[in-house]
């Protein structure tokens, strides 16, 4: 995250992973899907266990919870797939992200977002771009591209 510069705000989609709130820039979100049939890829890493069909495209389904060492909860009626598009290995790539629950598109001001604390984080610090506050809740902004590029 660039250092907080002024009060510019951006829209972010907030969703739950194992009880914590995460947010991704709404700019990269293509759509949000209810849970659909997932094809398991035998031999793939736990992080990208399967493939889904998004409007005729074969798209890998990723589970960020694996990268954050969270417990993988069973699929519930609230489970959603957030389809995001990003630049990965130099090409535009579409990926589905499993979310326990999707909340809303929230307005976040850049000033309110801080660098992740150096200590006291349970996750790899380079996987989190910043921490913001929304009401009384902390919102974690994952470094999506970095997480995927790290494989």
């Amino acid at each position: 995250m660039p250092p907080a510069s002024g009060n510019r705000s951006f829209e972010a989609l907030t969703f739950a992973l194992s009880g914590e709130i995460f947010a991704v820039d709404a700019y990269m979100v293509r759509e949000i899907l209810d849970i659909i049939p997932v094809t398991e890829v035998p031999g793939a890493q736990d992080f990208v266990p399967g493939l889904i069909n998004v409007r005729g495209r074969v798209v890998p389904l990723a589970d960020l919870r694996v990268k954050f060492g969270m417990e993988v909860a069973a699929i519930s009626p609230d489970t959603r797939i957030v389809v995001v598009e990003m630049e990965l290995f130099g090409e535009a790539t579409i990926v589905g992200l499993l979310a326990d629950k999707v909340y809303e598109v929230a307005e976040l001001t850049e000033a309110a977002i801080e660098d992740p604390p150096a200590i006291g984080m349970k996750w790899r610090p380079d996987f989190i771009k910043g921490v913001g506050k929304h009401g009384n809740d902390f919102i974690f902004i994952p470094a999506i591209e970095h997480i995927f590029a790290a494989g």
Binding site: P37, G56, T93
Partner: peptide, 22 residues
């Protein structure tokens, strides 16, 4: 398959079946 599955050697690609699954 995307680069995320480049390490899976048993498959050369994927397709979409009549019922929409992969």
């Amino acid at each position: 398959l995307s680069r995320l599955h480049a390490d899976v050697a048993n498959f050369s690609g994927a397709t979409i079946l009549g019922d929409g699954t992969v």
